[in-house]
């Protein structure tokens, strides 16, 4: 199921949603700015530690939710090992293809980057009550509630959409489509058919939802009564500030000043 929030007591659960959202953005900035595998490995390890230790996220849940991402990461690692231009230290030969050390480290960097982004997103989603996020977006960020609620509604309906797609695929498999959708053309055809069916049914559903929401006064006024107080524990803000400081230090020393041996790991063995 797409909806992953799990209610349990933990530091991250207690933390306010906006600080956590900023943390998520900092993690994204870290992995996008850093170009070497070691920094990315450290960030990935910190994200995992944050999730397991501070968020009580279950490792199995994290692994299973991100199975497609793991496949993508491994595939990119293998791909770049073989196609990285300018690699000189050959690790493996497969006929005309050479896997190089430089390519492998570059592929590892990309794989770690993807893993950090995926894991931090799951850590955020599984420890953040969507109500609290919407409430804080409205009360703290001053986002109009219609926009904030759109995010909430998406979380509400994504599982419904997911179940709908599963049912359509099952129904089509019974008619023989799943069995024959082996080639690219067949798969595209299946995708087109499923998309049309989903759209037709979801448009009808969304119309009912819109009527149901409007008939309960949604959007009638510019504001809406909040039924939860915004609580922002200072320790949560401090946690995010710590990550922000780490990012600034990294940018100053490693990016602006050239990173003379502070964190940057060599790609080539000769460096």
């Amino acid at each position: 199921m797409i909806f992953v929030y799990q209610r349990r007591p933990s530091f991250l659960h207690n933390m306010d949603a906006i600080s956590k959202l900023v943390w998520l953005i900092i993690v994204g900035a870290f992995v996008l700015i850093s170009q070497d595998w070691l920094t990315n490995a450290i960030v990935f390890a910190c994200v995992l530690l944050t999730g397991f230790w501070l968020g009580r996220v279950q490792p199995a849940m994290l692994f299973f939710r991100l199975i497609p991402l793991w496949f993508t990461a491994v595939w990119l690692f293998v791909l770049f090992s073989f196609i990285y231009p300018g690699g000189v230290h050959v690790l493996l030969r497969l006929g005309p293809l050479h896997a190089t050390r430089e390519g492998a480290l570059y592929g590892l960097t990309i794989a770690l980057r993807i893993a950090s982004l995926g894991c931090s997103s799951i850590v955020f989603a599984s420890t953040t009550d969507p109500r609290r996020l919407v409430n804080e977006l409205v009360e703290v960020v001053r986002l109009p509630y219609r926009f904030a609620f759109a995010f909430y509604a998406a979380l509400r309906f994504l599982p419904v959409l997911q179940a709908e797609v599963r049912n359509i695929l099952n129904a089509r498999a019974v008619r023989g489509e799943g069995r024959i959708a082996a080639g690219l053309i067949d798969r595209l055809d299946l995708l087109k058919g499923v998309t049309i069916t989903v759209l037709a049914r979801m448009i009808r559903r969304v119309q009912i939802t819109a009527v149901a929401m409007d008939s309960r006064g949604f959007g009638a006024y510019r504001t809406r009564t909040a039924i939860d107080d915004v609580v922002r524990p200072p320790i949560g803000v401090a946690f995010t500030a710590l990550w922000a400081v780490a990012l600034v230090v990294y940018i100053v020393f490693d990016v602006i000043l050239g990173g003379h041996g502070l964190l940057r790991a060599p790609i080539s063995g000769n460096q």
Binding site: F3, A153, I208
Partner: peptide
């Protein structure tokens, strides 16, 4: 269809 009517989580 309550699944279409319910707007909240």
């Amino acid at each position: 269809d309550p699944d279409a009517q319910l707007a909240s989580i």
